[in-house]
Simulated scan of single mutants.
Amino acid sequence: MNDYVIDCQNLETAYTASLHRPILNGINCQIQPGEFVVLLGLNGAGKSTLLRSLVGLVPIVRGTIQINGVTMNPRTLTTIRRDIGMLFQGGGLIRQLSAIENVLCGRLGTRTTWQTLWGFGQRDRLLALKLLEEMGLKEQAYQKTAQLSGGQQQRVAIARALIQSPQILLADEPITGLDIIAAQQVMQTLAKLHSQQGMTIISVLHDLGIAAEYAQRAIVLEAGRIIYDGPCHNLQDHFSPS
Rank of each mutant, 00 (worst) to 15 (best):
L127K: 12
S98M: 00
A157W: 05
C29W: 14
L42R: 06
I67H: 13
G136L: 10
E139C: 06
I65V: 10
L87R: 10
S149E: 06
Q66T: 14
G26L: 14
L137F: 03
R82M: 04
S53K: 13
P33D: 03
A141R: 05
Q140S: 12
F36D: 04
G91M: 06
V61S: 08
L93A: 07
R82G: 05
G106P: 13
A99H: 06
I60S: 11
K47F: 11
A146Y: 07
N102W: 04
G91S: 09
W118D: 08
T76D: 02
D124H: 12
R21A: 01
G69D: 08
F36Q: 12
I100W: 02
T79L: 07
G119P: 11
D124N: 05
R52S: 00
N28W: 09
I65C: 14
G121H: 15
R62C: 02
V61D: 09
Q32A: 09
R75L: 06
Q66I: 15
G136H: 08
G56A: 02
I80W: 10
Q32I: 07
R21W: 01
A99Q: 11
G46C: 06
R160W: 01
L108E: 12
Q89V: 11
G106M: 10
S149V: 08
T49H: 11
Q96Y: 11
M86A: 00
H20T: 04
I23Y: 03
Y142N: 14
K130D: 08
L137T: 03
L108K: 14
L40E: 03
T16E: 14
K47L: 03
A146H: 07
A45M: 04
G150I: 10
F36E: 02
R107N: 00
S48A: 10
T64I: 00
T112K: 06
G85S: 10
G150L: 13
M135H: 10
T113Q: 12
G91D: 14
N102R: 08
G26C: 15
G119S: 02
F88G: 06
L126S: 11
G41K: 07
I60K: 15
R62T: 07
G119H: 09
L126K: 12
V61P: 10
S98Q: 02
L108P: 14
G90E: 05
G63S: 09
G136D: 06
N102P: 12
Q66S: 15
P74M: 09
C29F: 15
V55H: 04
P33H: 03
V70N: 03
Q153R: 15
A99G: 09
L51K: 03
K138S: 10
F88Q: 13
L93C: 11
N28T: 08
L24T: 00
L129I: 07
V37Q: 08
T64P: 06
K130S: 06
L40Y: 12
K47A: 03
G41F: 11
G119D: 12
L54C: 02
P59A: 01
I67K: 12
G151I: 05
L19S: 02
G85N: 04
P59K: 08
T110H: 09
L129A: 04
E133W: 01
I84R: 05
L148C: 11
W114E: 04
G69I: 01
C105S: 13
Q122F: 08
I65M: 14
Q147V: 03
G56T: 00
W114L: 08
Q115D: 00
L117T: 13
E139P: 15
Q153E: 05
K47I: 08
S48W: 01
T145C: 12
M135Q: 11
M135A: 00
I60H: 05
